[in-house]
Write a protein that binds this DNA or RNA. Structure first.
Lengths: 340, 340
DNA sequence: CTTGCTATGAGGCACGTACCTCATGTACGT
DNA sequence: ACGTACATGAGGTACGTGCCTCATAGCAAG
């Protein structure tokens, strides 16, 4: 049987009340008494029964995911996972909600983050582009005792705030390596398509991609990024224009998580002589594209893992516990048809 | 606040005792009373507080991992993860242990599985080659109320028994596709090296690999598998012999999880004109090999995920709960230097 | 010596559920 | 009408911890 607080009290030669005071950092205990209890903890290998503690506290957790308001399939998948997690974490008294924000307006995001509605929440996972406003708002949340994690995009990890997501520079490099190897000896140009290069993650991916191509595949040229702004017509136009100036397009790298529109346009434009295409994120659409050989590889991160990881980290923060780093590391996955 | 059993009792118009009888499938309740309670559960959206239930039961879980007795680095990593999991699951009153078996002797495995020591255990994750003896022993364990999962290798999933691991056929196919694409236009032969082809997983990987190469890369020939039997000298000899008969070796596929010896030999033998090499599993050694470009890609499964998944599944079985399938699906990961 | 402060002990109630006992009710067969 | 078997209620204790109140002991300053 595992030692309980009662055993601790006996071992330390103090009362249950004192053990309780020490365990919960309550004032009014002399330092040497604290030490006695801590020694007993060491000696018995006492592990606090979190389960019973939470029961006694009547504690439940409320976490919030702040997500952009796009119709993105990747985001839709993410939201589905959040709801799934809401089910499976219910047994542990954890409730998660989703709130949407206008990603483009830092002031509005900061306003939402400052709103008093959020004060009943135990922790927030924020998916928003980096900006001074958001950074400040986060700092204020932390002052109020509300933990935050940066989710997928945006802020860099800081001391106050974990980052849940992949290293986008490495993800871009991975795409670059695959592109290089898949194209091996064929010289040519590579089209890079992004929704907007203002997003930090797109930028980093592009940097990582370029680094690999420039270093190891001198016969390949990476063209300037095309920005779609999420507009179908514009996407078609700029890709066609690019085709006119560059006849020798051998590869296409779609940087953004919204691959659908660029992919459709590219597939149509390059009806024959399809270049090697690499995109990001697994969605019903990109999965089908991989199956039908419209795409050669996907660089992805597991949305379910992202969501659960954010929740686990927020809870660990709340409990003042350590996290199991190896479990929370989000991997950059390479998907081809065979390992879907 | 979430409804409790008390609320349930009021809603159903019965006593707490009856609610308890229904919730825990105890006899002595008329069917229509059972229905009343179940309706109340539906209506209130009652979710049993597993945490409180386990507290009351004084329940703790003991799970066992039965692993082969090799000195394999992959296995060492696995064991490290099990100890890690033992720490992090301690808060949920779950204890996991490791026991070693002689993988080569089905009778001995069956004997271990039948030993009375195992009767105090709640569930067992078994990593052992498939055999009728093991199959029978498992069936007997299940009769005794001890759940089992097939871990990484061995048995196919059955109704009684989940499989935790990757689809090895798909893993082989993934290796095949990468090999084909990395070699693209260079014709040649591919060396396949296994510890033994008696292992089901090696066989399946090879089948998946061949399927892809034969279908899509006719300029490549897959040679008969070389079996090392884990012997360094033998490995060096058979690889050298193979080199004499086949001058045009363009690729090497190391099927087994123990890649170290084959890799060392291959690296030495092919000092110049290194073929494309693909191996399995991430270990300190294969990771270093990837970094130093001795290996071109690794096909891996996450040991931490494997371990935690097995534990979660065993616990869910024990609690009679459903598992979250998407979380328990072990992915076939593709590792290159950039996404390590 | 009194006053006041701090450190500690003793004990109880609560959380939501499991599990036990005992009493009572109800329907059935004889 | 009686005994029997089954269905249900009522109430208690327990699990390990948190949190509260009250009592007491020790010590130092006035």
């Amino acid at each position: 049987m595992r030692p309980t607080t009662k055993d601790l009290a006996i071992e330390a030669g103090v009362s249950l009340a004192t053990v309780d005071r020490v365990l919960n950092n309550r004032p009014g205990v002399r330092q040497d008494t604290v030490d006695k209890v801590n020694q007993a903890i060491q000696k018995l290998g006492f592990i606090r029964n979190v389960v019973a503690a939470n029961l006694a506290r009547g504690k439940s957790y409320r976490f919030l995911f702040l997500l952009p308001r796009t119709g993105d399939e990747f985001l839709a998948g993410l939201i589905a996972r959040i709801h799934e997690a809401n089910q499976s974490f219910a047994a542990e008294m954890i409730q998660v909600d989703v709130m949407h924000i206008h990603e483009s307006d830092p002031h509005q995001i900061a306003k939402v983050l400052g709103s008093p509605d959020l004060e009943q929440v135990d922790g927030i996972a924020i998916m928003a582009p980096e900006s001074p406003q958001v950074r400040d708002a986060k700092a204020r949340l932390i002052e109020k005792g509300i933990d935050t994690v940066s989710f997928i995009a945006g802020q860099v990890a800081s001391d106050h705030d974990d980052f849940v997501g992949i290293d986008n520079h490495a993800a871009g490099a991975t795409a670059g390596r695959l592109m290089g190897r898949f194209l091996d000896r064929s010289a040519g140009a590579i089209l890079v398509i992004a929704e907007t290069m203002l997003a930090r993650d797109s930028l980093e991916r592009r940097l990582g991609f370029d680094e690999i191509i420039n270093a190891d595949y001198p016969h390949l040229t990476v063209l300037p990024s095309l920005e779609t702004y999420g507009d179908t017509e514009r996407t078609a136009r700029i890709i066609r224009n690019s085709l006119l100036s560059h006849r020798n397009i051998a590869g296409v790298y779609i940087v953004s998580s919204e691959a659908r529109v660029p992919l459709e346009v590219v597939t149509e434009v390059f009806a024959k002589n399809k270049p090697v295409i690499i995109a990001h994120e697994r969605t019903p659409f990109t999965e089908a594209a991989l199956r039908s050989h419209q795409v050669d590889a996907l660089i992805t991160q597991d949305p379910g893992h992202l969501v659960r990881s954010a929740i686990r980290i927020l809870r660990a923060h709340r409990d003042g516990r350590e996290i199991l780093a190896s479990q929370e590391k989000i991997r950059i996955e390479v998907l081809i048809e065979e390992n879907l």
